[in-house]
Design a protein around this nucleic acid. Sequence first.
DNA 1: TATGATTATGATACCGCTAACAGTCAATAG
DNA 2: CTATTGACTGTTAGCGGTATCATAATCATA
Lengths: 335, 335
Amino acid sequence: MKARATIRDVAKKSNVSLMTVSRVVNQKGNISKATAAKVLKAIRELNYRPNITARSLAAKKSDFIAIIVPDISNPFFSEMMKGAEDFARENGYNIFLGDTEGKVELEKEYIDAAINRMADGIVLVAPRLENNLICEINDNIPLVIVDRSINKNDIPQVYIDNLKGAMSAVEHLINLNHKNIAFLSGPKDVQDSLQREKGYIMALKKHNIPVNPKLMLIGDFSFEGGRDAFEKFFSNYPKPTAIFASNDIMAFGLIQRAHEMNVKVPKDVSIVGFDDILLSSLINPPLTTIRHPMLKMGIKAVELLVNKLNNKLDTKISFILENTLIVRKSTRRIE
Amino acid sequence: MKARATIRDVAKKSNVSLMTVSRVVNQKGNISKATAAKVLKAIRELNYRPNITARSLAAKKSDFIAIIVPDISNPFFSEMMKGAEDFARENGYNIFLGDTEGKVELEKEYIDAAINRMADGIVLVAPRLENNLICEINDNIPLVIVDRSINKNDIPQVYIDNLKGAMSAVEHLINLNHKNIAFLSGPKDVQDSLQREKGYIMALKKHNIPVNPKLMLIGDFSFEGGRDAFEKFFSNYPKPTAIFASNDIMAFGLIQRAHEMNVKVPKDVSIVGFDDILLSSLINPPLTTIRHPMLKMGIKAVELLVNKLNNKLDTKISFILENTLIVRKSTRRIE
DNA sequence: TATGATTATGATACCGCTAACAGTCAATAG
DNA sequence: CTATTGACTGTTAGCGGTATCATAATCATA
């Protein structure tokens, strides 16, 4: 491993002071062309690279932000991440990643790491962290929260309209004449799930369809969870003619188990998902689902954070991103 | 934003020296129970958090490693990432993420960022970076390269056996009596692609099937690329009875376009993919493909790096991970 | 021409922490 | 009873940068 040149080495080699080198490197302040050239030459010859850790310490800013998500291998989050990462880089920030596996304990660990490493800010996707903890974090480090809303008007937040999304999914089924519409919820301790359930119930009520608890199951957002749920739904009376799943992955599970149990989708049962992840259009049948702009969510989140860091925050700091119903082949009209 | 307590504040409050606090925090050296308790109390009361940036600078190690991948929204890499991230955390490291979008320019940018931020090491997935550059990086920072092999025996590397994988995919088709087997390659400037093509050719030769350039197309690993390729294959004479795609995503594209053009899979054409990403089993028809252990690859890569950092590297530093043929419904025997 | 403003550079004091060495004191050994 | 050891704590000098203030030289302005 080669030894690394420091700013002092460069200063010595080019016969100027530390500060002159620093100014050249950061293009700050005034330096004559001549000295700049001299310094630049020394930098090249020594292969000098500024030590950003040292800079962070001295300048009290690190130019990186932490993004903490429940699961990067979930297309939903990796897509969001991509948007975030991109926007961050374009604005001179690097990204520190935390994958919490949905565990509160890991969420805390990563938040601590971010603070201790002097992250300039955090973009946090932590569906089950308690509200008061979030406020506490917000006192320690600039924060943007994603995919959940919190009733605190000084914390920037970006989230999707789960309620409206769920309603339009269910109303789509109702419009196709379905009455026995089952609902496969996500875990009850995350806000998304609750909102989607609320949307389901509101849609039914709006159209005077009774809410039947037997048609409601709680899943865990996993593929396996979807499979299990399908089996339960179809071993129960009354069998639903349609199922609305709280996310696409569970919908995939439903569909796969349906195939195996020889129940045809959409002939025997219509299925609607939520998220429109990349592959929802590719499965058989292509999934009717709710699309929300994941990339945009990532971009918006970092944008808010960067603005906050530059004290350029608008008065509007809460963004609800609109979702759209994508009708494909997993739903059909019944008589 | 609250002001942050420093180690000095703690020292003052508990009437000990800086070093004593440092020792308590890091559990290094000997401290009496009494002073430890005193210091711990002060730490709690001041809500002190060690500044890891400062620590990194002083201790010349940062306890984080950079992982640089072409595309985290690609399940292949996000899965790998997950393994890496997990293993890293368990060993006291955090992860810095770089998504290069497959661009050499961004690869360089992230490598620089990693070095400048004093990353302890880099796990690099950079299929098209030139070999000599990789060696150069290896002189500056501990490096593990993933998903490509390089003929340099001091750089730890983990990769999959693309050649064998491709061969077994093609031989599977040959065993099903196919002769007109098309090949959809990845970009020609990445090693994976080259190896898979080599495997395709070797399998054909081994079974005395002539290699027909008309049946070979170059794709870009994208879904769209798969769609386009299918169209080309089927507007060309001779039409293949089977297609081996260099990755699953392209295979999905092939299948989708096939559906649209009313060509039945596997009745009219058999399709084999490569990667076995999560959703390959869920599409219609479920995809026959080559599975490689992505999670394991991430774990192994970080394991090698951590060992290297602790000077515990075995003599064996090159790992080829075995892949397996997963036979599903997208391939069938012909007469 | 005297004055203030601007440009170009340097000296110094940190940022918050750790490594390395230097004590102090009590216990144990010779 | 002195020497040695080990447990415990402190002092000092950085790590590699930047902020801040100071200084000298140059320039424009009244």
